[in-house]
Design a binder for these strands. Sequence first.
DNA 1: CGCATGATTGAGGGCAATCAAACGTCGTGG
DNA 2: CCACGACGTTTGATTGCCCTCAATCATGCG
Lengths: 252, 252
Amino acid sequence: MQVAMAKRKTTPLKDFAPDGHHCSLDLKTTKLGMVSFFQDLEQDVLDEIVKRFTATHYREGDEIYYQGDPAHYLRVVVDGAAKLLRYTDEGKDVVLDILNPGSYFGSLKLLGSDVYTESAEAQSGCCILSIGLKDFREILQEYPSVGIAILEMSAEKLRSSQEQIKQLTTESVETRIANILLILTDKFGEVKEDKTLIQLPFSRKDLADMAGTTTESASRVMSNFQKEGIIETGRQWVAIKNIEMLRSIVEH
Amino acid sequence: MQVAMAKRKTTPLKDFAPDGHHCSLDLKTTKLGMVSFFQDLEQDVLDEIVKRFTATHYREGDEIYYQGDPAHYLRVVVDGAAKLLRYTDEGKDVVLDILNPGSYFGSLKLLGSDVYTESAEAQSGCCILSIGLKDFREILQEYPSVGIAILEMSAEKLRSSQEQIKQLTTESVETRIANILLILTDKFGEVKEDKTLIQLPFSRKDLADMAGTTTESASRVMSNFQKEGIIETGRQWVAIKNIEMLRSIVEH
DNA sequence: CGCATGATTGAGGGCAATCAAACGTCGTGG
DNA sequence: CCACGACGTTTGATTGCCCTCAATCATGCG
């Protein structure tokens, strides 16, 4: 017999200032300083660099750029979340990455020109800094440590991308989804009393597109997780109640 | 009725000097200059850089490094081919990349230390140059153009890795294999009279591990391709007879 | 309060994995 | 030079995971 308690199903997620919100210069500086490829710089140098970035606010669902667009900017998430995805001809979307504050995306094509090979969309309301590639190149020339740091971030991205390939070819849908929940918990987890809320709005379809499966399959897996008491979930949100059980699913 | 001609099924692949072979200094210099991140340098600068690399020859099947090993070197393929792969607990291998001459691999962890997250193996007999990360870092400091070039190569790798993810989640086994054949043709194709030989020894299992499928499925697909006259194949080798048909399979 | 959208659940089917067996090719040694 | 064995490849039969199609339910907003 089920617990008779009527669960609160209204969204527990915080609101990312739907509009009118702008990142202050202070916020920009603070957050940019946290981005790992700038973290070794002095405060005054950082101040100078920040000036070269432009802040833009996006509302949930806004398109940041579209695959095929000419690629002239490097971007950094300072607040909220963005997702990188590829739309396929048959209408199947593939989510390549969910970016949390401190992550860079966009183009690194410093020589010649290029077009984006993926699209970027605001997953929640978010604040994004962008910089023209020429400006960024000047920064690179002046501060070699930035180049080294970004090279490492880039290697790290490749690594997680390869991990994703491994998962897709060897793991079941259930395992892949469990793994994604762990990754999202790392990136967006907010510890509450008895659970960890993933501070990010995402639907079953988003989850399916990350796991390379269908909405229905994702829903089935999530239903089971909920029945087993591993998670608590509602429309567009998920909280982890038993992270150990998730880990053991992924390990096995 | 089949063509009555007895087809030559012995390997048409060239032999990569099974042992005793060493890359000459000249070969090293020539080949390294072809690697795109050094291609902008002057000849005398290149000569100096080459001295910092060590050449090693591997025989087909040799292990170059193993996942989990401490990662202290950056490597470049100068002759032959290497593959990057991950072994899983259940014994399923996942091939992440097949590297042709001019490709770099290994570690880019310039600060701190790291371990390899994948293994590298000689796919054919091959000659590999390696350089310690400290030395490489010095080169980076001295020649910023190298850093920029490698950053772009790194971005390109990420891109092809993401393409692979898209393929795995949206395309059939047949399409994925067709696509891999096209990629290998680009990297290792050698044009003959009426066909393009892929100058690389690789088995059905290798192909399966690249496509994220099983040996049996890969074999079935290849059998069909052969029946349809798209390819000609034997033990460990493949030649493309009708590349357009392969392209149309991938497009659709 | 009612509609739009997201989430769930069920039934059925298909692609590819698995299990199993035989065949062809190459290297080795008698 | 031929026979044998190892290994790569092929083909067949069967299973099962997950996709597809379809209908219903729930949530949140206007």
